[in-house]
Design a binder for these strands. Structure first.
Lengths: 239, 239
DNA sequence: AAAATAGTGTCTATAAGACATTATGTC
DNA sequence: GACATAATGTCTTATAGACACTATTTT
């Protein structure tokens, strides 16, 4: 049946038959802060686009899974140890997207609660491309290096979409939160106001939340019941 | 401000500082044939997994965009000149997914009308990894090479999801079709029967179809009105 | 006229959206 | 008691789903 002598033998495969592109990961880390959605950018310290702002990212190591590379680069360049949520977004591979060489970038988006979004330190590890790291509101961005504007755009669309049919919102809040805080997260990301009664009715009917015995008391007014998500993975609504 | 001598100079970037992975594209081409959803597989003619069935695919060339590579590999290995729809799915990059070397695969899914799914010839180009190509019903698959089972699984989920909130179905039908044909496509992919009156009511209310002046007459019964999609890109419903 | 598929409407149940008042805490 | 936010329900409208008969063509 097989006439090919190479069956089960690696000898016929030459890994250098094709010149190889470089592969990077880039991460759009998003968080709600002060009533606005923010994205984490690094200031590039090296050519190309030195001095411009860019998404954190870098080369995938030869024996490193893609998700691991995304975690590592995010940590090295921004000090974020572990985002609450990380999902692969899309792979950007236009031939001329990087002046250095052919670079294919596997883009990710990461989510963090606003309360955890203070950068552990603003001193990226030596040896990375980053000079510093900083949160920017997504409506007031500096010009971005490479095609990072397009990557960020796609991350925002994906987040907005997923918010409406999954429970990813858990990754943008503390473990325990009030329904008002939850609503505010939705409003920040969807960019519009929501009706309080309808929002609560809907959220509670999904049965993804559970009330805790605790309350949040703050200011001269009635305290609010604290809730938590039953699960810390995104649940898909409906179908 | 800049202490780095490399500003605006490519000299400091060494493209060989990191060993590079290989990058491939793999394509899950799907079509409805004889009341079942089928996927196009190739029989591998070379190590590794020689003799096993796999998704068509291959190495991305160093000066080739990812989408172009997907089109090219699909054509070389299966003779399909142009799928009606092609979308990037996900990038699979587990370290050990290919025994040859580190291979990162950018997976795509492609859609074709059943009527265009006869393979132009079953003789893949020389120099590809394919010995032959063949359609398989997705419920009766042979064991698949590499992680292609997982890729196909994701393609099926994506197609099912997109069918319900976009008009991608256009890519699975001829230019002109009857509402019964449209319904059958939905039934094949969703894997369940749909109510005829509700289906037609819903489809017509979306205003993505237009009636043609033509009818399809076939067999001893009333002829059916032919319709077409107003646009040949997927329209998103609602939102 | 028999056979075969095309084409059509109503009623019910559920979900979404608009909308205002009372409750409970702090100071 | 003044203030500030929490908490709650009804009515209306739109959408989804169950369900059966008539229309038109060929042979």
């Amino acid at each position: 049946m097989n006439t090919n002598r190479s069956e089960d033998s690696p000898t016929s495969y030459n890994p250098d038959a094709f010149p190889r592109p470089s592969v990077t990961v880039d991460i759009a880390a998003l968080t709600p802060r002060r009533e606005k959605l923010h994205v984490l950018l690094i200031e590039r310290g090296v050519w190309p686009h030195e001095g411009m702002w860019a998404l954190p990212g870098g080369f995938v190591r030869i024996e490193e899974n893609l998700d691991d590379a995304a975690h590592r680069e995010l940590c090295e360049e921004t000090g974020i140890l572990k985002p609450r949520y990380l999902e692969q977004l899309y792979t950007f591979g236009t031939v001329d997207r990087d002046p250095r060489t052919r670079v294919i970038s596997v883009a990710y988006f990461a989510l963090l609660p606003g309360s955890e979004s203070d950068l552990p330190n603003n001193q990226p590890h030596a040896g990375t491309d980053a000079r510093s790291a900083q949160w920017f509101p997504v409506e007031a961005l500096p010009p971005l290096a490479f095609d990072h504007g397009a990557i960020l755009q796609m991350a925002l669309e994906r987040l907005r979409a997923k918010l409406s049919y999954t429970s990813v919102a858990y990754a943008l809040l503390n473990e325990e939160f009030t329904l008002t805080e939850l609503q505010t997260v939705y409003e920040i990301i969807l960019g519009r106001e929501l009706d309080k009664r309808n929002f609560r009715k809907k959220m509670l009917s999904l049965e993804i939340l559970e009330a805790t015995p605790r309350q949040k008391r703050e200011g001269a007014h009635r305290p609010a019941q604290l809730f938590r998500f039953k699960q810390h993975e995104p649940i898909f609504f409906d179908g």
